[in-house]
């Protein structure tokens, strides 16, 4: 009996990781967030693909990264599930960072919210770990704080070395805090339970970020008024592409 129990436990442990994430408890479900970096209506391709911005200038994107923290899921009943302490760094260069799964309580949800950036607590609490590790290349040394979003590229209209433009946007101190709350409304209710897997595909459109001419502004690398204004811009680049629900039994 004891032996059987152990064997079944062992089997259960072996089988669980097959879902990629520990199987949800009966009262919870898995939501996968997929980030789709875009430029206008085209999927973003780094370095060698030419894009045209709103000013008719051609440009290339070389690097695109941003933090997603403070994830929460709102329901019609006005309750919100906050995924405490979860931080995720999206890097357009690394496919593995473009999707991640979280476990949330079963229920019916109508909105998905997150912070584009890092809140002031994590900016003032010393050396953090995981995606917030200061070795991730998203941290300022001489003036402490996270770079909340980073966009680099080049364009002939930039009168700079190698025609480069670089936007390292951050700063946690008021009035120029660059963290932005992003609310993604879901057109239909998202039902989360342990039998289904929900996927939210979120577009991040860089054409929306670049609403100032690169000929005029091509470098913001310190916190302040300009960084905060640019954060207002990129806060608008996120939108829901589509919401998919797959019954888990078919996986």
């Amino acid at each position: 009996m004891n032996y059987l129990l152990r064997l079944s436990l062992l089997l259960a442990i072996l089988l669980l990781p097959a879902y990629g994430i520990a199987a949800p408890a009966p009262d919870s479900g898995i939501v996968t967030i997929v980030i789709e970096p875009m430029f206008g209506d085209q999927p973003l391709q780094l370095s060698d693909k030419q894009y045209v911005d709103n000013f008719g200038d051609t440009l290339y994107i070389d690097l695109f990264r941003f933090y997603m923290t403070g994830l929460d899921f709102g329901s019609k009943a006005d309750t919100t599930f906050v995924l405490a302490g979860y931080s995720h760094l999206v890097d357009a260069e690394d496919k593995n960072t473009l999707s991640f799964s979280v476990k949330i309580p079963a229920g019916t949800y109508s909105s998905f919210n997150f912070t584009a950036g890092v809140d002031s607590v994590d900016n003032t609490s010393g050396a953090n770990g995981g995606d917030l590790d200061p070795a991730m290349g998203m941290y300022w040394a001489w003036n402490t704080g996270y770079i909340m979003a980073k966009l680099e590229g080049h364009s002939n209209v930039c009168k700079t070395l190698h025609h480069a433009f670089e936007f390292h946007i951050g700063g946690y101190m008021p009035p120029y805090n660059a963290a932005r709350n992003i609310a993604i409304a879901l057109p239909r209710a998202m039902i989360v339970d342990h039998d289904t897997r929900n996927t939210l595909r979120i577009k991040a459109d860089l054409a929306t970020w670049l609403t100032t001419s690169l000929a005029k502004v091509n470098s913001i690398v310190i916190p302040g008024k300009d960084a905060a204004a640019m954060a207002d811009n990129y806060a608008k680049m996120y939108s829901l592409d589509k919401e998919v629900q797959i019954p888990l039994i078919h996986e």
Partner: peptide, 13 residues
């Protein structure tokens, strides 16, 4: 400019 003991070494590094 540096707000915490733990991240101070990042300045000189």
């Amino acid at each position: 400019g540096i707000n915490h003991l733990e991240v101070q070494p990042l300045g000189p590094i």
